[in-house]
């Protein structure tokens, strides 16, 4: 048998090859194609004309794109704060619960396993101005939620983010909880002997000890915030008046509604570079000795 086939160091590569092969045709090849398409005015079907950097010029003039980028930024900030803080606190509190912990974990994690369409419909009904909370409050003589937050341009983005965060934070609880269970119990015992409070143990033992998993969660949030699409599309389609439009939503509209596939590819390329910068940043931190 040829030596390269039995080389123990190469065996893992052979097992990875089928996945790499599929990955190339499903992800890498279309991505490379997208890099080329961004220099064209292709509508998705017919002739492909080279237009140079025209799409990029158009992109930097596109007020909707700028708005969408800003919304993605807000979205990322929201996800880096609210669900993270809530999940950390809940996960820490759960470590102190011995009986019924599994029940709480299930309840918190449940929205994460629901399809996005189901989550969206639940919240659309809750915020329905007539049949939801608004209607109930109206019957009590209280003018609260009489207008759906999805229908107001001042609140639409936050309302959609709220629904997505409601579905997402249970996932964070589980991964933080997993990290917390790996912390050496003797550290807490030592802290107890020193008379540390619960908050002090959380701040000086738990947080530093789960740092790798915590940083990983932040990376996941930042990267997943870039292509966020489904909740926005189902609940508001980016409206009203683009007030909840995000970049992936704008890309979809350009590619599949306006049939500007070349231009949509330009948006895709910008998203790709943005994710590349984020990954590069964390790679740099790792190189500098940060435990990320």
């Amino acid at each position: 048998m040829p030596k390269f086939l039995t080389n123990i160091n190469a065996i893992s590569w052979y097992f990875l090859m089928p996945v790499l092969f599929i990955h190339f045709f499903v992800i890498a090849f279309p991505s490379i194609l997208s890099l080329l398409l961004c220099l064209t005015d292709w509508n998705g079907f017919g002739k492909i004309n080279y237009v140079g950097l025209e799409n990029f010029e158009e992109l930097f003039r596109d007020r909707i794109f700028k708005k969408a980028v800003y919304h993605n930024f807000i979205w990322t900030i929201m996800f880096l704060t609210i669900p993270v803080i809530v999940a950390l606190i809940i996960a820490y509190l759960l470590t102190g619960i011995k009986r019924g912990q599994l029940f709480y974990r299930l309840v918190y994690f449940f929205p994460y396993i629901l399809a996005s369409i189901v989550n969206c419909l639940i919240w659309r009904y809750i915020f329905h101005p007539k049949h939801g909370l608004g209607g109930w409050f109206e019957n009590q003589g209280i003018d609260f939620l009489s207008k759906s937050p999805f229908a107001m341009k001042e609140t639409a983005l936050y309302a959609v983010a709220w629904v997505d965060m409601w579905h997402f934070w249970g996932f964070l609880v589980i991964i933080y909880l997993t990290g917390m269970y790996q912390v050496d119990e003797s550290l807490y015992e030592a802290a107890d002997i020193e008379g540390a409070t619960k908050f002090q143990k959380f701040r000086y033992i738990t947080i530093p000890m789960i740092r790798p998993i915590f940083i990983l969660s932040l990376i996941i949030i930042i990267i997943w915030s870039v292509p966020t699409f489904d909740y926005v599309y189902i609940l508001t389609m980016g409206g009203p008046a683009y007030s909840s439009e995000v970049v992936a939503n704008h890309l979809y509209s350009q590619a599949f509604q306006r049939m500007n596939v070349g231009y949509a590819s330009t948006i895709g390329v910008m998203m790709f570079f943005y994710v590349g910068i984020i990954v590069g940043f964390f790679a740099l931190l790792r190189r500098l000795g940060w435990e990320v």
Partner: peptide, 17 residues
Amino acid sequence: PNDPGVHIWKDMEVVWA
């Protein structure tokens, strides 16, 4: 055509806003 057609319903919201 597609592009002006989408503009009509997408951007009408911007006028209303």
